Simulated scan of single mutants.
Amino acid sequence: MVFAAFAAADHLDKGLPSGTLLEVGNSSGLLFDLVSAVAGGANILVDETQFAALHSSILAGESVGSAATVTASDGEELELVGRMEVTRPSGQLSLDFTLIPTDPDHVSLIGPLESLTISTSGGIRIPSLDSGRMIGPDLYIRCESLRIEGNEARFARTTSAGADETADIRFEVTGTDLTLPALVSVAPSTDAFELVVDDNVPLVFPWIDYRDSLEEEETIDPQSRSIRFLSKLQNLARTHGHDDGRATFFMKLQGRQPVKAEKLHEVLAFLQAQGVVRLQGDLVFLTRDADRHRFSGKGRPGQRTIQDEWTYWQPIVERLETILAGS
């Protein structure tokens, strides 16, 4: 398999058979390691099969002490631009990429549906879930249209969001074109999945059970914008792969909230000065002080709210509102 990974990395842009490339990606973390090393920080062009194989390879190389994320969003034309990152005990690897869809109207996700954040003004197509593919965990999709093909959907069984407050899997569909299987054969864990659509989009059982309002989520109250941001930051910061506190990747944070990159850098610089976060390369860590004052943004029974921790957060929230008002 080592030789196969070397050969596939060397011929990645030379039209390898899709089945061969996906098999190598599914079997070995070496494919991603080699491609990222050769790229040396440069942006590479990938098609949907290459994207899926590299994503699979990241996950194949994961261990107890590693954490991975893949993020992609609309570029200037029909492409998506993004980054793959993995932090392992041996260090951090990353790969910047430009994804060129086969069909300009939608992106086909033929690879893993986990550790992925993807946002596009176009469509997303998820082919039939075969060969054991599952939806999630840690999946965020925002798109104009969504089509999940096949007769059934299967979700990865994860623990409830619980104290982390956020859903592990979230689909936001901004348009009305939505196609879903009639059956959910493996249901998501409690509170682990949200399907966010406009109120005019009809849903049937079992999908109606996971419905959330797009209008409610996207209507941002100016008086609580900073609290929403802080809640999202806390939700994304996890201990997996980090032995010195909770952390999230900058690209993941950027992809899952509306503050753009330039303003986000300003926000994080302010929070760092306030002792809320610590920046280390591409990672954003919550400080121990901020972690002691974590709060739930949804007010679940038994969890701390922003009101409970207002003495700590009030001066931060008030200044953060001013910063975000300029974005």
Rank of each mutant, 00 (worst) to 15 (best):
V284C: 13
H293W: 13
S27N: 09
P17A: 01
F295A: 15
M251N: 11
L146N: 08
R246E: 14
G275D: 06
T219V: 00
E62A: 08
R157S: 06
P137Q: 00
N235H: 05
K260N: 15
D308R: 01
G297N: 06
T98P: 00
Q223I: 00
D138R: 00
A273G: 08
H11S: 12
L113P: 12
D209I: 01
A60Q: 11
A39T: 04
S119F: 04
P112E: 11
S327T: 11
T69Y: 01
L12W: 01
M134S: 12
R88E: 15
N43T: 14
F155H: 03
S56K: 08
T87N: 09
P258V: 05
G61E: 04
A52P: 10
A153F: 01
Q314A: 12
V197R: 02
P188V: 05
P112T: 12
D33T: 10
G326S: 14
I208D: 09
V81P: 10
E165R: 04
A325T: 13
H240S: 15
V38Y: 02
G136I: 00
T179H: 05
I124K: 04
R225F: 03
T305E: 00
I118D: 02
I169R: 02
L34S: 07
P206W: 01
L80R: 07
A247D: 11
G241F: 09
E144F: 07
